[in-house]
Design a protein around this nucleic acid. Structure first.
Lengths: 137, 137
DNA sequence: ATCCATGCAAATTTTTTGCATTTGT
DNA sequence: ACAAATGCAAAAAATTTGCATGGAT
């Protein structure tokens, strides 16, 4: 995962502003392992920025590849700090979202997909199940 | 993919009504290889059912496992007749959506995921790229 | 000072709900 | 006849846009 320091220096380098909202949003995203929705990002922010601002800020960070957007099967967009290629594992009981380093899985899928003749630029994979903790309840 | 005949006989067996909307919706879904959104399903229907009806009908068909719901990265829900386990390949240029028989890909992913200790009940995989036709333009 | 970011209101889009009416069996 | 399906209006939820103001450099 990109560190906040890396993100901030990248923003400085490209001449982008370091506003309070921007910095707080980055800190909140960096402080959690869970992808967060816009609503959650508003709530978690002590200075309660307007949701419009959060939407616009996320669009900015997305455009600069500093955050990634994921949509699970509830249709809500969630955001996380950019990091090495990975996928998600969601516990449908406690809702915890874990990352899965994707190398092995993707290599294999890529090989299969090559046969289609498509130039594959992107893909998403999400796995849903019950985490070990929830299995013991 | 389930045939419309199979679907209809299943509905009869379980005592569910064969309404005009229901039959038309099933026919529209069966006649295309593309997963369709609610809006598209309303437009494609010559008797122009109310969108509320389409939502409710899809919920009914979903509950009975006769259709499947997919969400791509635009966040819009799309529906298709249930069929053997598969994933989707989306051309980001012409928007065509193809099915990918998923057996080989999933076997491998499942083996990797077992190590997490989760009981995996479901997963989704979508691939995005440029189809052969669009590559030659 | 300039440009970008912000807040607010309002519009859009997708989906859901309540209720009275119609339709399938 | 009865239960389920339908249409309409309205509400809800997520997201986007316009515009005037405030803030970072």
């Amino acid at each position: 995962m990109m560190s906040t320091a890396t993100i901030i220096s990248q923003l400085k380098r490209s001449g982008d502003r370091l506003t309070e909202n921007r910095l707080k949003l980055i800190n909140i995203l960096a402080a959690t392992s869970q992808p967060l929705s816009v609503l959650e990002l508003v709530k978690k922010n002590s200075s309660q920025p307007h949701k419009t601002t959060v939407y616009r800020e996320l669009a900015f960070l997305l455009k600069n590849n500093l955050v990634e957007e994921i949509i699970f099967n509830d249709g809500i967009k969630r955001y996380e700090i950019s990091s090495q290629h990975h996928h998600h594992l969601v516990c449908t009981n406690c809702k915890k979202i874990s990352k899965i380093a994707a190398k092995k899985i993707c290599h294999h899928a890529a090989a299969q997909l090559k046969k289609t003749g498509y130039i594959i630029n992107n893909h998403s994979m999400e796995f849903f199940g019950i985490c070990p903790k929830c299995q013991n309840k």
